[in-house]
Simulated scan of single mutants.
Amino acid sequence: MTQTAPKYIRPKDIDNRATFWQRVQWRLETIGWDLLYWGPMKLLGPDRASNFGGWLMKKIGPRLSQHKTVKRNLRLAFPDWTDVQIEQTALDAWESAGRVAGELPHLPSIDPYTSGRVDIVGLDVLDRLKASDKGAVFISGHFANWEIMPATITQRLPDAVMTYRALNNPHIDRRISDLRAAYGTQINAPKGVGTRELMRALAKGQTIALMNDQKFNEGVAVPFFGHDAMTAPGPTRLAMKYGVPIVPVSTVRTGPARFRITFHEPFMPETTGDETADIQRSVQRITDFIEEQVRANPDQWFWQHRRWPKEAWKAAGIT
C-alpha cells in the first residue's frame, strides 16, 4: 500500500523545556535505540524478536521498581489469588511487555489484512461505520500488543485519527510516528494538543481512537475491579457532543507476533438530560468492558502503571 507523508503532531512544550544537556542525552539515547535495540531486533524476525523480547523482560522486569507496582495492582484486583499466582502473572505481564518491544520494529510485517498473523472479528462493524459516513469513537486498553488496533482501523478507515502519548525524546518519537505511518496510520494525535484534531475529525464524520484504561487524575471516579479509579471521560464527552457511537475494541495474543482483534458492537451513550449522570454511566460501561477483557487474559494487560490511587492499596492492606 502506497503511503503519503504522515501528519506528525508534537507537543512543543516538551522540547521547549529541554536543556542543552537534555538534548545531548536525547541524541545518545537515539544512538543506543538504533544500535542496541532496533537493529538487532530487526535482524531476528518477528517471531524470534517477540520471543527474545519476552524472555529478556521476564528476566529484567522483576528487578525494576515497577515490579512492586505490578504485584500491588494484581493483589488489589485479585484479592483471592495466592502469592504464587500473583508472582507468576506478574512475570507473564513482563513477558507480554517485552514481546511488544520485540515486535515493534516488525509492525509493517504484521499487517492485519495480509500477513496471516491477525484474526479480525467483527470486521462488519468497520464496514458499517464506513458506509454511515458518521464517525465513531473507538476505545480500547493496553492489551497484548496494542499497536495492532490502529492499523486494523486505519487500513479500513484511512482518515481515522489515533491518539498516543508522545515520548520525551523527539528523535525516537518521530521514528515511532514514521513506523506507524508505514503500518497504515497516517494521523497520530498526541494526548493534550491532539484534542483539537479529534474534534475536527468527528466534525467531518471521521473516526477517532483512544485508550481509556489509564489513570487520569482529573477524570471520573468509577469502580474498576471493585475499587474507584480515576478515568478519563473524554471519549464519552466526544461521543455525546458529536452524536456518534462508542466502539469497544479488544486485542488478544494468540502466539508470537500473532493476534486476534475484536470489534465489539457499538453503543450510544445515554442522553437523558442529566449530563453528569450520563457521562458517569458511559465511563462505567467502558471501564466494565476493560475489566472484562483484563479478567479474561490478566497476563496480557499492562499492569506496570499505577491505575489506582495509593489510598486504594492502603485500604486493602497492601504494602
Rank of each mutant, 00 (worst) to 15 (best):
P11A: 06
Q186M: 15
T319R: 11
G192S: 09
G194K: 01
R295W: 08
K241E: 07
E311I: 13
P233F: 05
F224G: 00
R307E: 04
K58F: 03
A77N: 02
S96K: 02
E311P: 04
K204H: 08
S282G: 05
V222K: 01
T185W: 08
D213M: 10
F225G: 10
L64I: 12
G98A: 14
D119A: 15
N212D: 08
A136N: 06
F289D: 00
D92N: 10
E87V: 11
T82L: 14
M57D: 01
F138D: 00
H305Y: 15
V283D: 00
A182M: 14
K58W: 06
T185Q: 13
L210Q: 03
R128S: 15
E270M: 12
E95Q: 11
V244Q: 01
V294N: 00
D299M: 08
A131L: 13
A221G: 08
E311C: 05
L76N: 03
Q25S: 11
K71T: 14
G234E: 04
A221H: 10
L76H: 02
R306W: 02
S109I: 09
T207G: 08
L56Q: 04
D178V: 14
H106A: 14
E291C: 07
R27K: 10
V220C: 07
M240H: 02
M41C: 14
R117M: 05
A239Q: 02
Y37Q: 03
Y164E: 03
R117D: 03
A316V: 06
W303E: 01
D299C: 13
F225M: 09
T319A: 15
V222P: 01
N188C: 15
P108N: 07
G317H: 10
P62D: 05
R253A: 03
R128D: 15
D228C: 06
L28V: 12
E147K: 09
H142T: 03
I176G: 02
S50C: 09
T89Q: 02
F143Y: 15
R285Q: 13
K58G: 15
D124M: 12
G39H: 10
F216K: 01
S96P: 00
T271C: 11
P46E: 03
G184Y: 00
G98Q: 06
F78D: 00
T163S: 08
M41Y: 11
P62S: 05
V220F: 10
M162I: 15
P158F: 08
A144W: 04
P158T: 07
S177G: 13
R260H: 09
V161R: 00
T89E: 03
A5R: 06
A160V: 09
H264L: 12
Y183C: 15
W21T: 07
E291A: 15
A144D: 01
A166H: 09
K215P: 00
G116H: 11
I187M: 14
W308T: 04
A316Y: 09
S115I: 07
G122D: 04
K134C: 09
A144F: 09
F20T: 11
V249Y: 01
I120Y: 09
K68S: 11
L36P: 00
H106F: 13
G192A: 08
D274C: 10
Q22I: 05
G317M: 14
I139K: 02
D278P: 04
L126G: 03
T231N: 05
V161L: 05
G39R: 14
T276I: 13
D173E: 13
E29P: 04
G54C: 07
R237I: 12
D47W: 04
A101S: 10
K7N: 11
K7E: 14
T163G: 07
T69C: 10
L167A: 14
N188D: 14
W301Q: 02
S50Q: 05
